[in-house]
Computed example of a mutant assay.
Amino acid sequence: MTIQYTSFAYTESYCRAVDVVARERQYLGATEGFPLDASFSFAKTIIENNLAQYFAIDNNQVVGWCDIIPKSYEGLGHVGVLGMGVISEYRGKGLGTLLLQKTIEHARNINHLEKVELDVFESNSSAIARYRKFGFEVEGKRENGRKLDDVYDNILLMRKFI
């Protein structure tokens, strides 16, 4: 198992990993992955701009990812948005912690980033605990922010100054 910076060589595998986690309908806002061409475009943006994205690789396949992408609107570029996921068979092995640590270290080197924000479903207690361990704090809550399969979940808005 290795943690490494994003590369085009892993874009298809990353695309599959996002789809697998999204189809669990529990952890990501999306319920299915993104098209491959959109994933290549995303990778191109990350690589060309030296943005923070790391993969957990096992047997030459992406089994987890973490990224911090700066907001693009004028006046918001000092804020990065964190996204991450780990395929179910690899959870509970410390990969999320390793990915988050490496990605935050990289984001600190992007001079204009001062703050990292994320949205997390309140039912995802293990992710919330990991974020708190890294110094993230809740700064708001969207009550019943998600309704999926007739079940509501609150969305916690968390942040960390870096």
Rank of each mutant, 00 (worst) to 15 (best):
F55S: 03
L82A: 07
V20T: 12
S72Q: 12
N124M: 04
L156A: 02
Y73K: 07
M158C: 03
E143G: 02
L148Y: 15
K93W: 05
A30I: 11
A129T: 09
M84C: 07
D37P: 06
E24S: 10
A9Q: 12
S13Q: 04
V21S: 10
T6N: 06
R25Y: 03
G33I: 04
L76K: 07
F136C: 07
K44T: 00
G83A: 11
L28V: 13
L118Y: 05
L36N: 10
I47N: 00
N144D: 14
Y10F: 14
A17H: 03
Y73I: 06
I128M: 13
S41V: 00
I128Y: 12
K102E: 05
P35K: 07
D149C: 14
I128W: 11
V151N: 09
Q61D: 11
V20Y: 03
C15R: 02
E137K: 15
L76W: 04
G145E: 03
F134A: 14
R108Q: 08
V81Q: 07
H112T: 11
T11P: 04
Y152K: 08
N60E: 06
A52D: 01
A9F: 05
K44D: 00
R23N: 06
L82D: 03
S41E: 09
N60Y: 04
A30V: 14
L51Q: 04
I68L: 07
G29C: 11
E143K: 11
K44N: 00
Y152N: 08
S13W: 02
K93D: 05
W65M: 06
D150S: 15
G29Q: 12
L98N: 04
N109H: 10
V120P: 06
E32P: 01
A56S: 10
V120H: 12
A22S: 09
V18K: 11
L51E: 00
I128P: 08
S39R: 06
L99D: 01
Q101I: 01
K44S: 00
E139D: 10
N59Q: 14
G64D: 07
I104Q: 03
Q26R: 14
T97C: 14
T97G: 14
E117D: 08
A107D: 06
D119P: 00
V18M: 09
Y14P: 01
G85D: 01
R91C: 15
L76M: 09
A107M: 06
A129R: 12
A22F: 03
E32D: 09
A38T: 06
D119L: 08
G96T: 06
A127I: 10
R159I: 01
S88R: 12
N59T: 08
V21N: 12
D153V: 02
A52L: 02
M84A: 12
V21E: 05
P70C: 10
R23H: 04
E89Y: 12
R25L: 05
I87V: 15
V81Y: 08
V63L: 06
